[in-house]
């Protein structure tokens, strides 16, 4: 019995892990682009991006999942996601990446705006280009300043992946809950907590390591 449960939970966790990784891979860079958009000097873009961030951060991720998955079919009469698992996964990735990119973008923006103007000007008078100043002077300092808030978001993401089941993506909580119906036992559901704890423990250690690595300088 224990082995059956572990196999099922492992399978569920694999999906959880997949959502986690794909979301980070997409949302980390997309968040930077959104951050630049929200700081743009071109007003229409800035306000479009700010509205997007407001809507995405102001509504539940669960609602966004439902709208993104069912919306196209119900509103336009054309289900872009198809009928198979592939479509469900794609919808989950889309919703998660969009949602997390918006949260990340605000963290990035705070980090970027906290870098003193003198750092940019020092780069400028030394003849550096804008991209050089951003990537060689500013970015590392931003990374250091945002590690703590980012680690919070990333740990929240691990737990948010459980929302994917609302559109029938088989992640770990669903895997655990299945045993209530099939075998009348509830401990597998509780046992999923161990997976979350271990994974988040690992992430905490990882972020602690990054923070320590970046501690070689102050400022």
């Amino acid at each position: 019995m224990f082995q059956t449960v572990i196999i099922a939970l492992n399978e569920g966790f694999l999906k959880t892990f997949e959502i986690f990784c794909v979301t980070l891979l997409g949302a980390l860079p997309l968040g930077l682009i959104i951050a630049f958009g929200s700081m743009s000097r071109w007003r229409p873009l800035k306000w479009f991006v700010k509205t997007l961030v407001w809507v995405v951060r102001g509504t539940p991720l669960m609602l966004q999942l439902l709208i993104i998955f069912y919306g196209p079919g119900k509103i336009f009469g054309y289900n872009i996601w198809g009928t198979g698992d592939w479509g469900r996964n794609a919808a989950v990735f889309t919703a998660f990446i969009l949602n997390y990119a918006c949260y990340f973008s605000e963290i990035y923006r705070g980090g970027i705006e906290s870098i003193p103007r003198g750092q940019y000007e020092a780069g400028q008078v030394l003849g550096m280009t804008k991209p050089q100043i951003f990537f060689r002077v500013v970015l590392m300092q931003v990374v250091k300043r945002i590690t703590a808030p980012m680690s919070n978001e990333v740990i929240t993401l691990v737990k948010d992946t459980s929302l994917a089941r609302i559109i029938l993506v088989y992640e770990i909580i669903w895997a655990g809950q299945d045993f209530i119906k099939s075998s009348g036992v509830i401990w597998p559901l509780f046992f999923t907590g161990v997976y979350y704890l271990l994974f988040n423990g690992l992430l905490t250690v990882l972020f602690g390591y990054i923070e320590k690595k970046l501690n070689y300088y102050r400022g």
Partner: peptide, 16 residues
């Protein structure tokens, strides 16, 4: 601007 250099009141060294 490379004809000129500027030293700031607040140094503005790159801390990293």
């Amino acid at each position: 601007r490379l004809n000129f250099g500027l030293v700031f009141q607040s140094f503005n060294l790159f801390p990293q």
